[in-house]
Design a protein around this nucleic acid. Sequence first.
RNA 1: GGUCCCUUCGUCUAUCGGUUAGGACAUCUGGUUUUCAACCAGGAAAGAGGGGUUCAACUCCCCUAGGGACUACCA
Length: 465
Amino acid sequence: MGIVTRFAPSPTGYLHIGGARTALFNWLYARANGGKFLLRIEDTDRERSTDAATQAIFEGLKWLGLNWDDEAYSQFARKDRHAEIAHAMLGSGHAYKCYATKEDIEAFRASPEGKYGSFQSPWRGADPATAPDAPYVIRLKAPRDGVMEITDEVQGRVKWKSAEFDDMILLRSDGTPTYMLAVVVDDHDMGVTHIIRGDDHLINAGRQSLIYHAMGWDVPVFAHIPLIFGDDGKKLSKRHGATGAQEYRAMGYLPEAMRNYLARLGWSHGDDELFTTAQAIEWFDLSGINKAPSRFDFKKLDNVSKHHIETAPDDVLIAGLQDYISSQDREPLSEDAIEKLKTVLPIVRERSKKLPDLLDKSRFILQARPFAPDENDAKHLNSVFNGILKRLTPQLAQVTTWSKEELETLFRDFAQTEGLGLGKIAQPMKVVLSGTTKSPSTFDMMAALGKDETLARIKDTLATM
RNA sequence: GGUCCCUUCGUCUAUCGGUUAGGACAUCUGGUUUUCAACCAGGAAAGAGGGGUUCAACUCCCCUAGGGACUACCA
């Protein structure tokens, strides 16, 4: 039987980075085993679910490259099927109608015994003949004794006394299903074989097993993965930086880097730190998932990001750049800009951590002359350098082989005859060429710019000094 | 409160009874350099605490402490 995994977020907000990792694990596991990765929107809570949130989740997953198989399922759309199962359980005696009102339950909770135990419906064993003509919910008739045990691929064997579970509501008084019922029915109908989800659902695995057993369905394999915390060990929140997957897009991380970092957070394959998505798919296994929660570390993310920016193919980088730019609501790069960018990618990608760094470093090739130097770097263009530039320019004009190596040799020789360190000349030259010293290597820039453009920029500078 | 889960360097982690407890990020020191959020070399840094089991425990068991989840007609 083929493997089927699923990601089942509720559409009440953007795609949380923790949810994104859960989705990634499910996706990785399905892809690693030639199975299917399904997406189901848990929208049975009509109060809190919104279309905008659903779209945000789609967008987040797409950005991360976690493509799902089939159409996304809507849990709400399947409510009739859920009700059907609830009634089937009623018929088989695994569930019963409960006429207790919300007020009854609240009163119970407020009472002394309500502090300890969960609500025990008086209708559990009641004679149907005594039933009032009033709204009711359908509750599961949970076993009162025995032990419920599950085997979790991450947590191992976990068991509870059945008495721990209350008679949970399956169908609300308005006829809509609760989450507990809906997940089980949907996972069963969708043929889900492996449920990989946050360990906040661990106890639910026990509860849900009750329903599987009642229906005589096969219980899927569970894998409850620990949560992601902020760097202080507290629940990840806005305070720690970004919690939404899309925010990472806006910060300029490559999806490939996010997949790498997120996969490594809570999962490991020996000492491998930096890997491609193809490798992750090849290596991914449930046994590599850690049981302890992990903390989100931006410094490490940056390091992973840097590696992917260094190694990504040009077209991936360009696509990432365009995507980043659109996330900033800026005009996309023109064909001309892309062509220019491609010529300098080899020299700007090496020292960049994030996508915007690439843009900053490429400024010299993208900006048209003449341009003014940055305020902080204008000081390099002083009178001393003016003299140096005037003596250097004729030599530059005579260069026949305009290459990085030739240029560097020329500069070194020139610096020597001037009795200066190379930095005294190369550094201000950066300002001439790019307007700032925070730029790629002087010689890389000159080579990329070409002789004519270089000379023209020198001329521009001389004219303003 | 109850039930369940978790606990190796600051952080992410390797180890699956026998290792000088390894790697990565961060950090520190030195070097290199035309800027640096770059590079090179080196250093410091960990099994929460206490009991067992065993020839041998980070690894298995128990207790304690700390952290977390759940305890809805939310998902």
